[in-house]
Computed example of a mutant assay.
Amino acid sequence: MNVLMSISDWFWNEEIWLPPNTTWADRVSTPENQLPKFMDLWTYPFYIAASFIFLRYFILNPFVFSPIAVKVGIRNVKPKTVVPVPVLEKIFAKYRKNVPEKVILDVAEELQWSERKVERWLRARLAMNHINTHTKFIECAWQFTYYTFAFIFGVFCLHNKPWLYDINHCWIGYPYNKLDTDVWFYYMFSLGFYWSMTFTHFYETRRKDFYQMFFHHLLTIALMVFSFTCNFVRVGSLMLLVHDVADIPLQMSKMLIYLEWKKLCDAVFAFFSILWIITRCGIYPLWIVSNTLFYAANLVPMHPVYYIFNVLLCSLAVLHYYWTYFILRIIVNTAVKGKVEDDRSSSDWRPPSEDGSDGVLKRS
C-alpha cells in the first residue's frame, strides 16, 4: 500500500501538473467553481463507450446499416472456408501472399496436388483473412453517423462561447475557467467514442495505416485527458470541433467508393480534400497550435504539463501532414486513373464472378 501511495504521489506531483503556487486543493470541483472533475474521466466515458459499442454492433449494424448496404447492392458475401491442410497452413503462416514458386512446386509434389490446386487453396486461405466490401461499408456508415452528429452537437455547444470567436479567451482566467455543462457533455461524448474505437480497433478492417490510426486514437485520448485534467478544456473543445468536420465527407466518399458512384464520389472527395487541408493543415496548426505555443505562454504560468500538452498537439499535427501525403497521392492517382481509390487500403477480397471463376485479390 505504501508503494502504491508513493507511486501516486510521484505521478500526481503538483510541480508537474499544476501552475506555480497552485495545489490540488485549489482544483477541487464544487458547484460554485465548476472546475473539471478528474474522476469523471474514468467513469462516464467508459459507460458511453460501452453504449456506443452496443448501439453500433447490436442495433445499427444489423438493423440499419446492413439493410441499407444490401438495398443499394452491396451483398454480404463471405469467402468460403477452406479444408484445413497442416502443411499448407504452415506455408501460409510463413509467407502469407508471397509464396515462392519453388515452395509451391515442392508442396504440390508432397501432397500430390497440381500446382494450380495449391495456388487456389492459398488464394482462398488468404481471402478468409480479408473483410468484404459490405463490412467496410457499414464501418464507414457508423463513423459517418457519429461524426455528423458530433459536429452538429459541437456547434450547438460552442456557438455561444466567446473562445470560438476569439481563441485568446481560452486562456483568460486560467486555471480557474468554469466548465460549462454542455461542454462537459461534448467532452464525455467524444472521449467515449474514441475509447470505443480503440477497444474495437483490432476487430475492424486492417489498412496500411492500421498502427498510425491506433496511435491517433491513443494520442487523441491522451490530449483530451490532459486537457481535461489541466483545465485546457476550452482549447480542447476547439480541437474536437476542427477535427470532426472533415471526417464527415471522408466517410461519405469511402461509402461512395464501395457503391462505385464515381462522379458523386469524385465531387465529395474533392470537397473533403479542400476541407481537410483548410482544417487539419491550416486552422489546426496555425490557429490552435500556434496559439498554445506562443500566445498562451504570455498568460499561462509555465509548468511541465503545458509543454507535454504542446508536444501532443504537435505530434497530432505531424500525423495530419502524414495523412495529407496520402490524400495528395489519391488526388494524383485519380488524375491518372480517372477514379478515386482509398490509397491506404489493404487487399480487398472480391466474391466469385457470375461465371463461376475464382474470387481474386484486388490490390490497391
Rank of each mutant, 00 (worst) to 15 (best):
L313R: 10
A296C: 04
F294A: 04
L219N: 12
L299T: 09
V305Y: 12
N298R: 14
V233S: 10
R234M: 13
V289F: 15
L250N: 02
L240I: 14
K262I: 06
L256F: 05
M224D: 01
N298I: 06
V318H: 02
F214W: 13
Q251R: 07
P301G: 12
V305E: 08
V242M: 13
L259M: 12
L275C: 06
L264M: 12
I277R: 03
F210Q: 10
L319P: 05
I327Y: 04
R280L: 05
L275W: 05
G236L: 14
V300S: 08
L299E: 10
Y321K: 03
F210R: 12
H320M: 13
L250A: 03
K337C: 05
R234C: 07
W261E: 00
R206H: 12
F228P: 06
L256G: 00
M255Y: 04
I283T: 02
I277W: 06
A270K: 05
W276G: 01
S290R: 14
F226H: 02
L319V: 12
W276Q: 02
L328K: 03
R207E: 12
I248Q: 00
L319M: 15
P249Q: 09
W287I: 09
F309K: 03
D244G: 08
H216T: 03
L250Y: 05
L275P: 00
I221P: 04
I288C: 07
L328D: 02
Y306H: 13
H217I: 11
H216E: 11
Y325A: 11
C314R: 05
P304V: 15
M302P: 02
Y321S: 12
I327N: 10
T279I: 01
F326P: 00
A246T: 11
V318Q: 01
P304Q: 14
I327F: 06
V242H: 06
M302V: 13
